[in-house]
Design a binder for these strands. Structure first.
Length: 592
RNA sequence: GGACCGGUAGUUCAGUUGGUUUAGAACGCCGCCCUGUCACGGCGGAGGUCGCGAGUUCGAGUCUCGUCCGGUCCGCCA
């Protein structure tokens, strides 16, 4: 059966006079009693179909149609009469005078309107996702996603990368996020884990002689969700043998640039490289938004001998910092706004938010307004004004305390202020963060890898063991507009180095053997030097579509509590299924 | 695990210090009218477990507690 001869959105003046058949949904209907207009919608767009009463049967049928009915319409294309052209519609110069109408399917009254003017809550959208996805905004997001994935594959294939799939039913990895587990029927009491990433497999593939690997890898992490985090997500996973960090960085820079050009017609200019240490110093974060011109200034040294305890204590403590964030013309911020900012930094653990309003910098202390100024010596103030280079009308915020708290709170404040005062200077600002430390001390007090335990330190085993916290790595993160898009590293390919790292992390040999003995074994059998990276595909699309949430670029996403409102997953299993899997459900009421 | 915001008609929302109308509006829906609209228009109509459960009160959409759902964030996400 031939449904259609033409697509709705593609019919134009050239087709005038032709008999056409179109299919699609009734996007909107306008029933004037004596004449009925339908805007018919298919993948390509809209076209107006006109039903006249002289064709009685068809007209009666059209009267019975409602929004989102699925129709097959036949008719003659004609140029619209004088004065009825719609310039907002691609096909607005023509219309179809209907001669025949077949209703292919009806539709219940919609739970929400699909046009771009109506706003709908996310709960309703997710429950009726099939309708939500019909909306123009979602259509264009999902279509861009497909276009980008196509473009990425093209680039990677052109560069000689080979797409290889790795298992979803696999084994729990060491540390990291909580795993999603799948019970084994054939091994009672045993479980597969869904991969948090294909890290170990891709390194194994390097040992297998596939020198350039990539995969659109589905990854699973059972952790609490955020606007940019879903329990299952897609990574563009890349690994190459016989390359160094710069090879990977260059390849990925080329790839991202090309994809932006091909899909958005955007030229990403340069990708500056910042060291981890620089990024923390200037922005308080390892994923700075470089569209934002604001920078933190370290003013710790000025307060070493101050009487003002709030500042002098951190000034004399090694794991503390005092940073200033100067907002040009920020003096106009209301008291209320400053209070809001104070509450805001409080969520990151800051005890307060000191500030100085600059009325007239030439007057020194007298030209300033601040609740803290009376506690600070004139001489310190003078030095402060010089090093911050403040101007009339500015406001300076201060963070003083533990490094982590100051960095977390001021980096977040930097983003918020830029948003509130509309300070962003460009549309796109990619960058690379390099020279990550190998380890850090986590809040638990334990030494943990910044990236992962398979990242190669730059130093020798001897130096590494001597002071692990000093070791830097060839790890690199790509950051776009303040979002960590992806990251990677040069990997350890020497089993002795790998053992040394595991030892520092207190992962004993038995545990290592049990969890990833196969990788260590592969390292011992001629594994080449290799490096790679993974990019968060969903986040990339979120940025490219300027969406506020990753959910808007995933066809069927989960809610913040990791459920699917359309399918109602997760759901209970039957007792037969549980028996087969040797599982028993605890009495849920008995818990606690 | 924690903080905060929200939940009222199909949808998006309003609902005053707790009480006066029968809990409203817009859009949608249904009916009638309308031959050039394009977010058509006009007239009329239907539509509510105020998320759920307790409590305070003479009286609760409104206050309190608990709970569920959605969202933002902290923790968490090597």
């Amino acid at each position: 059966m031939i449904f259609r001869t033409h697509y709705c959105g593609l019919i134009d003046k050239q087709d005038a006079g032709q008999e056409v058949a179109i299919v699609g949904w009734i996007h909107r209907r306008r029933d004037h009693g004596g004449v009925i207009f339908f805007d018919m919608r298919d993948e390509t767009g809209l076209v107006q179909v006109v039903y006249n009463p002289d064709n009685k049967e068809t007209f009666a049928l059209a009267e019975s149609c409602r929004a989102e009915f699925v129709l097959l319409s036949k008719g003659i294309v004609r140029e619209r009469p004088e004065g009825t052209i719609n310039p907002d519609l691609a096909s607005g110069e023509i219309e179809i005078i209907a001669s025949e109408l077949t209703i292919l399917n009806t539709s219940l009254a919609l739970p929400f309107q699909l046009d771009e003017h109506a706003s709908v809550g996310e709960e309703t959208r997710l429950k009726y996702r099939f309708l939500d996805l019909r909306r123009e905004a979602m259509q264009s997001n999902i279509r861009l996603r497909a276009k980008v994935s196509h473009s990425l594959r093209n680039v990677l294939n052109e560069e000689g990368f080979l797409e290889i799939e790795t298992p979803l039913l696999t084994k729990a990895t060491p540390e990291g996020a909580r795993d999603y587990l799948v019970p084994s029927r054939t091994y009672p009491g045993s479980f597969f884990a869904l991969p948090q990433s294909p890290q170990l497999f891709k390194q194994t593939l390097m040992a297998s002689g596939f020198e350039k690997y990539y995969q659109f890898a589905r990854c699973f992490r059972d952790e609490d969700l955020r606007a940019d985090r879903q329990p299952e997500f897609t990574q563009i996973d890349i690994e190459s043998a016989f390359v160094d960090a710069n090879d990977i960085i260059n390849t990925v820079t080329r790839m991202i640039s090309k994809v932006f050009k091909e899909t958005l017609e955007v030229d990403l200019e340069d990708f500056p490289h910042l060291t981890y240490a620089e990024a923390i110093e200037k922005y308080g974060t390892d994923k700075p938004d470089l569209r934002n011109p604001l920078e933190l200034v370290e003013v710790k040294d000025l307060f070493i001998n101050s009487d003002f305890k709030v500042f002098s204590e951190p000034a004399n403590s090694d794991d503390s910092r005092i940073a200033a964030l100067c907002i040009p013309m920020g003096g106009s911020l209301s008291r209320k706004k400053i209070d809001d900012y104070t509450d805001f930094v409080g969520t990151f653990g800051a005890k307060g938010l000191a500030y100085i309003k600059v009325d007239d910098p030439s007057k020194g202390k007298d030209g300033l307004q601040s609740p803290i100024i009376k506690f600070i010596d004139e001489s310190i103030i003078e030095k402060l004004l010089v090093s911050l280079d403040v101007k009339e009308g500015d406001i300076v915020f201060f963070g003083a305390g533990k490094r982590k708290v100051v960095n977390d709170s001021l980096s977040a404040l930097r983003d918020l202020v830029a948003q509130d005062l509309d300070l962003l200077t460009s549309e796109w600002a990619p960058c690379w963060i390099v020279d990550f430390p190998m380890f850090e001390i986590a809040s638990s007090g334990l030494i943990t890898p910044l990236h992962h335990p398979f990242t190669a330190p730059r130093c020798s085993i001897k130096e590494l063991i001597k002071d692990p916290l000093l070791a830097l790595t060839d790890a690199y993160d790509i950051v776009l507009n303040g979002t960590e898009l992806g990251g990677g590293s040069v990997r350890i390919h020497d089993h002795e180095m790998q053992s040394a790292v595991l030892k520092i992390l207190n992962i004993n040999q038995d545990e290592a053997e049990e969890k990833f003995g196969f990788l260590i074994l592969a390292l011992k059998h001629g594994c080449p030097p290799h490096a790679g990276l993974a990019i968060g595909f969903d986040r990339l699309i979120m940025l490219m579509t300027k969406s506020d949430s990753i959910r808007d670029v995933i066809a069927f996403p989960k809610t913040q509590t990791a459920s699917c409102l359309m399918t109602n997953a997760p759901g209970p299993a039957s007792s037969e299924q549980l028996d087969e899997l040797h599982l028993k459900i605890q009495d849920l009421n008995k818990e606690t």
